[in-house]
């Protein structure tokens, strides 16, 4: 089971996670007991500079984003990363004075873990914002699908399909990119299957609407009010079948977030 739910996050955090895990095991097994840790001032300074830049850029993003959830979730991640960095700085200072300091060693482990946890939170916050962008597009499509209810002429239908097309293409592209990003095979399969169902049902919907519009356009007098209603209801049922399929597909996107 992969630890990180997207390939981007995995590629960024996996090397750090592995190194921290390796060092923690070495310390826990006492492999390094009694050995001096050298001066780490320079690499810690590099971390400090990187954290400082990251927080600055992140805060600028928080100020400009329209995503309220991102505005809420990002600052705690900054604090976590900054606190972790402070621990690393303290550890470096302590080691300069005492290369055998046990407390400094603990600070190094805590600080490294804190950086991993904080940056993970930060990347998750960003990823969730990306998912919300996809969901906004899908919701737009869902809303537009309900417009099918009022399409009764061929002219309306042409306009309807013309308007639906670009949104559908955009949604399909976003979902395809997303499924390629997911590390959990079962999530990927669910998302692909849901999207395929939508792709299969859409022509069925359009075909049903076409039939109905044609009949109305041809002014078939024998079409009773009752028959007209039945056709409309059938058409709407197809639309209604699409909704849960799409929604369940979108829920998959969040599975990796717990």
């Amino acid at each position: 089971m992969p630890v990180f739910h997207t390939k981007t996050i995995e590629s960024i955090l996996e090397p750090v996670a592995q190194q921290i895990s390796h060092l923690v095991i070495m310390h826990e097994e006492g492999e390094v007991d009694g050995k001096a840790i050298p001066d780490l001032t320079a690499p810690v300074a590099a971390v400090q500079a990187a954290v400082s830049n990251l927080v600055r850029v992140g805060k600028e993003t928080v100020q400009t984003t329209e995503d309220a959830i991102m505005r809420r979730d990002m600052p705690p991640a900054f604090i976590k990363v900054e606190n972790a960095c402070t621990k690393l700085v303290q550890a470096a200072l302590m080691l300069k004075a005492d290369p055998y300091s046990v407390q400094a060693r603990d600070y190094l482990i805590d600080g490294s873990r804190g950086i991993l946890s904080g940056t993970s939170d930060l990347l998750l916050t960003f990823d969730e914002a990306e998912v919300r962008k996809i969901i906004r597009v899908c919701k737009g499509i869902l809303e537009y699908l309900t417009v099918a209810e009022v399409v009764e002429s061929m002219e309306d239908l042409i306009t309807y399909t013309k308007n639906l097309g670009p949104g559908m293409t955009k949604m399909a592209k976003m979902i395809d990119e997303r499924q390629q990003e997911l590390t959990h095979q079962e999530h990927r399969v669910m998302l692909v299957n849901s999207m395929n169902t939508v792709k299969e049902l859409l022509p069925v919907l359009i075909s049903g609407m076409t039939k109905m519009a044609k009949m109305i356009d041809e002014r078939q007098q024998e079409l009773t009010h009752q028959e007209h209603r039945v056709m409309l209801v059938n058409s709407m049922n197809t639309v209604k079948e699409l909704l849960p399929v799409l929604i369940s597909g979108l829920c998959v996107l969040f599975c990796g977030h717990g």
Binding site: Q19, H22, L40, A50, L54, E60, T61, I115, L122, F126
Partner: peptide, 28 residues
């Protein structure tokens, strides 16, 4: 262990820089 801690801190700095680039790219 010297290599271990220095390597880890270097990786952490590089990772943070990479995240910063990601934020800038997505933001743009």
């Amino acid at each position: 262990i010297r290599v271990g801690w220095e390597l880890l801190l270097t990786t952490i700095a590089r990772t943070i820089n990479e995240i910063e680039t990601q934020i800038l790219t997505r933001d743009a």
